[in-house]
Design a protein around this nucleic acid. Structure first.
Lengths: 189, 189
DNA sequence: TCGCCCGCTTACAGCTTTTAAGTATTTGCA
DNA sequence: TGCAAATACTTAAAAGCTGTAAGCGGGCGA
């Protein structure tokens, strides 16, 4: 029988696509193996275990997210940068719900997902360049931004906003207005 | 053999405690049955399936969260109310990580978790009484608040803030300052 | 006291992860 | 070219999970 040509990279890619299709929680070693037409045991020659697969998937998602963020931020500053970053973030989560969910797994600071995670964090910090905040306010603001973006997308995905007539898009835009406003007028300690 | 006295309520309570101990994702019908000293199959006479158990757990957590929010808001207004609510929210998530995770499951609007979910949403809206925002800004602000609280707690729990010397507590307080500030100066459309 | 129902057990099917051992294919080197 | 070693995959199997079906027995109502 011909070999299937499975590699860790192709597994991770396939797992990402599968996650977007059927949900991150439903990505199993077995389902992945079926997609490649091999037995589940075959995958263990390429990945250590299911957890390893999830970490690789998280790294993939964080890398893609950082790439999009970088593209959105290029040549922009101030509110332009904030809005472009935020929209890139939200659109990624909507286009790739499975990947986005994968990016939220707990990240081992020494592990292979730590690098793209750090890069993603640096992108978020770059939003603030135009706002000129001193430390430690800058760190506080980065955390607030990240929290708001992640919280909004996460609640929206879970259907938290769907039972009120107000459009989620409209609230999102106004939330970004509010964030821009508070960054420009950051309260004194 | 003596009967174990299993009921749906006791199962849900035990599941909540178990979730806080070993994590929401690790709460299984089997593990729960072990805790009651019965076989897994016995539980299916009290709950429909594993999903049903998770929904009941979510309802429990949302009810407790709404209770805490109500207690925090009682007799407070403006920033006092905002800070009290936010701290109650964050403390609940820290004390009961498993319950908190359960509260984030996707909620069927017609299901039994919809009632406590709505109550929780109303509590969040009550924060804004002191800020006097007209609709639809009020809805937008509620969504922003909820997003920020949930996002912050969720990222903090996942260890997202642990690799920077700045204390997560300090950033939290400053984030609340910023939210108060932006609610008092809500940007015009 | 009798009988029935309810709460549990056993048994089982089918799914998952993961390890171990065996087989076949491909690669690299002489 | 041909052989040996490394690699990719298979089968087999253990252990745990969800969920269904059938059976048993204790306690409650009549």
């Amino acid at each position: 029988m011909a070999r299937a040509g499975v590699t860790a990279e192709r597994l991770t890619q396939a797992a990402a696509d599968l996650a977007d299709e059927i949900g991150f929680q439903n990505v199993t070693v077995s389902a992945l193996a079926r997609g490649f037409g091999v037995k589940p045991a075959a995958l263990y020659f390429h990945i250590r275990d299911a957890r390893d697969l999830r970490v690789r998937l998280a790294a993939l998602a964080l890398t893609e997210l950082a790439d999009r963020a970088a593209a959105a931020l290029a040549g922009r500053a101030g509110k332009d940068a904030l809005v472009a970053f935020a929209n890139a973030y939200r659109e990624y989560a909507k286009e790739h719900p499975g990947r986005y969910a994968a990016a939220q797994v707990e990240i081992d600071p020494g592990g292979p997902a730590a690098v793209p995670a750090r890069r993603h964090a640096e992108m978020t910090r770059a939003i603030l360049r135009g706002y000129d905040l001193p430390e430690p306010d800058q760190t506080d603001a980065v955390r607030m931004l990240h929290s708001t973006f992640h919280g909004y997308v996460s609640l929206e995905t879970a259907g938290g906003f769907s039972h009120h007539p107000r459009e989620a898009d409209a609230s999102w835009r106004r939330t970004l207005d509010a964030l821009d406003s508070v960054l420009r007028n950051w309260p004194p300690a």
